[in-house]
Amino acid sequence: MLYWLMKYVLLGPLLRAFWPTKVTGLENVPTEGGAILASNHLAVADSFFMPLHVPRRVTFPAKQEYFTEPGFKGRLKKWFFTGAGQFPIDRSGGAAAQAAIDAAVRLLREGRLLGIYPEGTRSPDGRLYKGKTGVARIALEARVPVIPVAMIGTDQVNPIGSRMWWPHKLEIRFGKPLDFSRYEGLAGDRFVERSITDEIMYALMELSGQEYVDIYAARAKELIAAEKAGLRPAVPVQVGARDAARMPESRAS
């Protein structure tokens, strides 16, 4: 109830009024049954604009810190993110990571739409980074299609580090569903899961027009932070995917 109230009464009309959005390929999102919407990730705003334009409810995993902060501000955040269709996950790794995958698979088997950012975190510079294989594991275990989604312009609305949202035209592109049924029964095979994840990231690169970089976004953020601190990054950040993959790692001096 809270989700639909936020979408159609409280937040949705405001977003539609101030941020006109061109949406293409929405017919690729199934009208029923479980499916993964795998999106590039440019800004926090992605999790608000994409579900706004999908007729069905979209559920996103979100870091549990959004739901556990104490005090009035914490309760307000929990109410807000719950209303936005997000559920908490522990990102500390190990058993917590498996619990997050299990929760996602359960939702998909219930016939829901699950929003996932394969990069794992926001792009630090607008480029597309290497995907984490959790999306492949979930797709295989739940036996659902993956719809690639390209968010364009949200990093201009909500730049990293900015508390303000700025007027800017947006575009959302929904690609054709990717069917991985040919890999049925191979969940847990790391080579298969990497192949599936790379196929998803290639579809996102084609759909979004972003430059692809073959390192994880979290690692890129570390390199950018080291560069700003005057340290030599282990791998130059301003390189393409092939160059980054070929370069040997060097130590900061």
Results as ranks from 00 to 15, higher is better:
3 Y>H: 04
5 L>N: 08
6 M>L: 11
9 V>Q: 00
11 L>S: 00
11 L>Y: 06
12 G>N: 08
12 G>L: 01
15 L>S: 02
15 L>M: 10
15 L>C: 05
17 A>M: 15
19 W>S: 10
20 P>G: 08
23 V>K: 03
26 L>D: 10
28 N>A: 05
30 P>G: 04
31 T>D: 14
31 T>P: 07
33 G>I: 13
34 G>F: 05
36 I>P: 00
40 N>W: 04
42 L>R: 09
43 A>N: 02
45 A>S: 14
47 S>K: 02
48 F>Q: 10
49 F>K: 01
51 P>C: 06
52 L>W: 11
53 H>A: 04
53 H>R: 05
54 V>G: 07
54 V>A: 05
54 V>Y: 01
54 V>T: 12
56 R>L: 06
58 V>A: 07
60 F>C: 03
62 A>P: 15
64 Q>R: 13
64 Q>Y: 06
65 E>I: 03
66 Y>V: 13
69 E>V: 15
70 P>N: 01
77 K>A: 15
77 K>R: 10
78 K>Q: 11
79 W>A: 12
80 F>C: 07
85 G>Y: 07
89 I>L: 03
90 D>H: 04
90 D>T: 05
91 R>F: 05
92 S>F: 05
95 A>I: 04
95 A>W: 09
96 A>R: 10
97 A>Y: 07
100 A>K: 01
101 I>F: 08
102 D>V: 11
102 D>M: 09
103 A>F: 10
105 V>S: 07
105 V>G: 02
106 R>E: 13
109 R>V: 08
110 E>H: 11
112 R>V: 01
113 L>I: 09
114 L>C: 03
117 Y>F: 15
124 P>K: 07
125 D>G: 09
127 R>E: 12
128 L>S: 07
131 G>P: 01
131 G>A: 04
135 V>F: 03
138 I>D: 03
138 I>T: 08
141 E>R: 15
141 E>I: 06
143 R>N: 12
143 R>I: 10
144 V>W: 01
147 I>C: 04
150 A>D: 06
153 G>Q: 07
153 G>D: 02
154 T>H: 09
156 Q>H: 10
157 V>H: 00
157 V>F: 00
157 V>D: 03
158 N>T: 10
161 G>N: 10
162 S>Q: 09
164 M>P: 02
164 M>G: 05
167 P>L: 05
167 P>W: 02
168 H>G: 02
169 K>Q: 08
170 L>H: 02
171 E>N: 03
171 E>T: 15
172 I>V: 14
174 F>I: 10
174 F>A: 04
174 F>W: 02
174 F>R: 00
175 G>N: 01
177 P>H: 05
182 R>D: 14
191 F>E: 12
191 F>I: 00
192 V>Y: 14
194 R>Q: 13
194 R>K: 13
195 S>A: 15
198 D>K: 00
200 I>Q: 06
201 M>L: 09
201 M>G: 11
203 A>V: 08
204 L>S: 12
207 L>T: 08
208 S>R: 11
208 S>C: 13
209 G>W: 08
210 Q>R: 14
210 Q>H: 12
211 E>M: 08
212 Y>A: 11
212 Y>D: 09
214 D>I: 13
216 Y>V: 05
218 A>F: 10
221 K>V: 02
222 E>T: 09
222 E>D: 14
227 E>A: 00
233 P>M: 06
235 V>T: 12
238 Q>A: 14
242 R>E: 14
245 A>G: 06
246 R>L: 06
248 P>E: 12
250 S>M: 11
252 A>H: 13
252 A>Y: 08
